[in-house]
Amino acid sequence: MTRKPSRPPASKPTSTSKAPDPPWLAWAMGGLGIVLVLGCLGVILWRAMSEVEDPDVQLRLIETRPSQGQWLAEIEARNLGGETAAEVEIEGRLGDETASALVDYLPASGRRTVILGFSENPEGRLEMRTRGWIEP
């Protein structure tokens, strides 16, 4: 029978100068590192395997509220696509009145909040659209 690599004897020459550190901590921290690295790898591969779609910006009116002589419309911009959109220009139209805002980055599957200002309450009458964006 071949000799099995057994636990080193207590008089290990390398650990004479210091008391040995608890090995469970080293293994636990190493395990944490492995889990995080494999987790990141899994998420990236999962995204790489799934079909990457162009940015798909969806706008939804969250609420309207009066503020300092004007009405503010709070809009949620969501990017349902698989690519990030940069400098997304979002426009709201209320009759003849238009308001717009520029979102610097709208990450893939991410969301940002946009506020547009109008002279009247835009509740129920607001038309929203995305004018364009840049691929980063």
């Binding site: 390398t14 080293a26 921290m29 190493g30 944490l32 590192g33 995080l36």
Partner: peptide, 23 residues
């Protein structure tokens, strides 16, 4: 000097360190 074996040094220091870096 302590972790003579390169694999255990990789797990105990590099992987553990990288995990902490990510956190």
């Amino acid at each position: 000097e302590e972790q003579g074996h390169p694999v255990s040094a990789f797990i105990h220091f590099t992987l553990a360190g990288y995990g902490l870096v990510l956190l």
